[in-house]
Simulated scan of single mutants.
Amino acid sequence: MVEADITDRIQAEAAVEQTVERFGRLDTPVNNPGLMLLGPVVGADAEEWERMIAVNVQGLLYTTRVALPHLLKAAEDGPRRVADISCVTGRVAMNGLGV
């Protein structure tokens, strides 16, 4: 396991590189950060929103950016000729789920 604060671009990039170094390649990152601070939007703390965006959006983008070259290489070298990114995102707005 590689631990990192993915809101820190340097740590997020290092986590991907450590994974490739340890296992020799990267085929399918499970790029599924998730932080949901519950509550109504009215009166919500904007700093909590910034924290959710940092984890759920920026962290996802930081890791994807550094993973892409490894995924393209895996697709080039692998028998299936594909590489995947597994990512689940929120698709439904619901009361009390804030951002």
Rank of each mutant, 00 (worst) to 15 (best):
V2N: 12
I6S: 00
I10E: 15
I10M: 10
A12K: 03
A14E: 10
A14T: 11
A15C: 06
A15T: 00
V16C: 00
V20H: 01
R22V: 07
F23P: 05
F23G: 06
D27F: 06
P29G: 03
V30D: 08
V30K: 02
P33S: 02
P33Y: 07
G34A: 02
L35D: 05
L35K: 02
L35F: 02
L38K: 08
G39L: 04
V41C: 08
V41T: 14
G43F: 09
E47D: 14
E48M: 09
R51I: 08
R51H: 07
M52T: 05
I53R: 09
A54S: 12
N56I: 05
Q58S: 15
Q58L: 15
G59T: 00
L61G: 03
Y62Q: 01
T64S: 09
V66W: 05
A67S: 12
P69Q: 00
L71F: 04
A74L: 00
A74D: 09
E76Y: 10
G78Q: 06
R80Q: 13
R80I: 11
V82P: 02
A83G: 01
D84G: 07
I85D: 00
V88D: 02
G90E: 13
R91Y: 13
A93Q: 12
M94H: 10
N95D: 11
L97V: 13
V99P: 00
